[in-house]
C-alpha cells in the first residue's frame, strides 16, 4: 500500500480515538462540570453522618453547589468532621444551617445547606456552626417504639 494512504488511515484512526476519548469524558462522564472553577473550603462537625461518602454532593435548594472532599473522625469532640468545597460563585451567610439529607427512600446521602440571614459571609476554611445529623433509621424506629410503649403505659394508668 502507498505510504500516503497509510498515513491518512493512521491519522484517521488516531483522530477517531481522540474523538472517542473526548466523547467519553464530555458526554458519558462529568468532566464538563469540573472545569477550572474556583472553590473554597468549609468545615462542619456532625454528630452522625450516616452513610455520607466523600464526593457526595452539597446542595442548596436542590442545586449542587459543591462536593464533600474529606471525612475525618475528631478525637476531641468525638464527632465527624466533614470538609467540603463550595464553588466560589456560591457564598453563604455565617449562620447557614447544614444538614445531612437522603435523596429518596434508598438514595444517596448529601449535605443540604439552608442559608441564614447573617450579613457576614462564610470564608475559606470557616466552620459551619449549626449542623443537623443524618437520620438513622434504627434510631428512629427505636424512638418510635419507645414513645409507643410510653403511650401504652400512660393509658393503662
Amino acid at each position: 500500500m502507498q505510504r500516503t494512504t497509510m498515513d491518512l488511515w493512521v491519522g484517521f484512526f488516531v483522530l477517531l480515538g481522540i474523538g472517542a476519548l473526548l466523547i467519553l469524558s464530555l458526554k458519558v462522564g462529568n468532566l464538563s462540570t469540573y472545569g477550572a472553577k474556583q472553590s473554597y473550603g468549609l468545615v462542619g462537625n456532625f454528630e452522625n453522618i450516616g452513610g455520607l461518602k466523600v464526593r457526595a454532593p452539597v446542595k442548596s435548594a436542590g442545586v449542587v453547589v459543591g462536593r464533600v472532599t474529606d471525612i475525618q473522625f475528631s478525637l476531641e469532640t468525638y464527632d465527624a468532621v466533614v470538609t467540603m468545597r463550595i464553588g466560589s460563585d456560591f457564598t453563604f451567610p455565617k449562620d447557614t444551617f447544614a444538614s445531612i439529607l437522603t435523596a429518596g427512600l434508598l438514595g444517596e446521602q448529601y449535605i443540604g445547606l439552608d442559608a441564614g440571614g447573617d450579613e457576614t459571609m462564610l470564608k475559606d476554611g470557616d466552620k459551619i456552626m449549626i449542623t443537623n445529623s443524618a437520620i438513622v433509621l434504627e434510631e428512629m424506629i427505636g424512638r418510635f417504639l419507645f414513645d409507643k410503649a410510653a403511650e401504652d403505659d400512660d393509658e393503662s394508668f
Binding site: 476519548l21 466523547i23 467519553l24
Partner: peptide, 15 residues
C-alpha cells in the same frame, strides 16, 4: 499506542 484508542472507541460504541 493503539490499545487505549481502541478501548475508548469500544466503550463509545457500546454506550
Amino acid at each position: 499506542i493503539s490499545m487505549p484508542f481502541l478501548a475508548a472507541m469500544f466503550s463509545v460504541m457500546g454506550v
